[in-house]
């Protein structure tokens, strides 16, 4: 995907680090605390421990090759810059390797903070299409990577195991249970295809 800034393209929802030649600085007067409180409730309870040492970004294999900057996202979140955080495409470059979590001297658990911010982003409609499709597959087949072709069954036969494994590929009632869970949590609505696409 092309992550270069499209300065005049207002349809681009992704906010990128750019110099002030390209966009005005955001003025931060009094930080808004509500986003931090949301993150703390959604799975990132230690975010406020962060003292910005940069150990996380220095350890991050995603940051080494993309404009994803975990320390920067945490700082933005602490300043209440919710929209900047949840609309950034690079939020989705963290592979959840947990290296930063193992090294953070303040027990911020940056990986969990990023996942919490992703949860909030998704709840507000920022979701990449391929991820949406993967989630839909689990509701359709019970598996993110389904046994969706005869050739996969042939492969199983070739190695000497039964053609259909004893998971949701064999038991339709298991898929039914997943659908009921998704309906109860509202996940089905969250990942369904939206009209305006």
């Amino acid at each position: 995907m092309d992550l270069r800034p499209k300065i005049n393209d207002t349809s681009c929802r992704c906010v990128i680090l750019t110099s002030i030649d390209e966009k005005p600085a955001i003025e931060i007067d009094v930080p808004d605390d509500s986003f931090v409180q949301m993150i703390k409730k959604t799975g990132g309870p230690n975010i406020q421990n962060c003292f910005q040492c940069g150990t996380c970004s220095g350890s991050c294999p995603a940051g080494a090759r993309t404009n994803y900057l975990v320390r920067g996202i945490i700082r933005k979140a602490l300043l209440g810059l919710k929209q900047q955080c949840i609309s950034a495409k690079e939020l989705w470059y963290c592979t959840t390797c947990y290296t930063c979590t193992d090294r953070c001297p303040q027990d911020v658990k940056p990986t969990d903070v990023i996942k919490a911010i992703r949860n909030i982003a998704v709840a507000e409609g920022y979701m990449l299409e391929p991820h949406q499709k993967t989630a839909q597959k689990v509701l359709e087949a019970g598996h993110a990577v389904p046994l969706d072709k005869d050739s996969w069954q042939d492969l199983r036969e070739k190695v000497g195991v039964e053609r259909i494994p004893p998971n949701a590929s064999r038991y339709a009632e298991a898929i039914e249970e997943i659908r009921k869970i998704a309906k109860k949590t509202g996940f089905d609505k969250l990942v369904e295809d939206k009209e305006e696409k």
Partner: peptide
């Protein structure tokens, strides 16, 4: 018998922690 996707921690854990934990 009847086990499903774990579910995929990257997608489900990033989408909705409660749904991830329930599945």
């Amino acid at each position: 018998d009847g086990a499903t996707c774990c579910p995929a921690p990257g997608v489900f854990g990033s989408f909705d922690r409660v749904t991830w934990a329930t599945i």
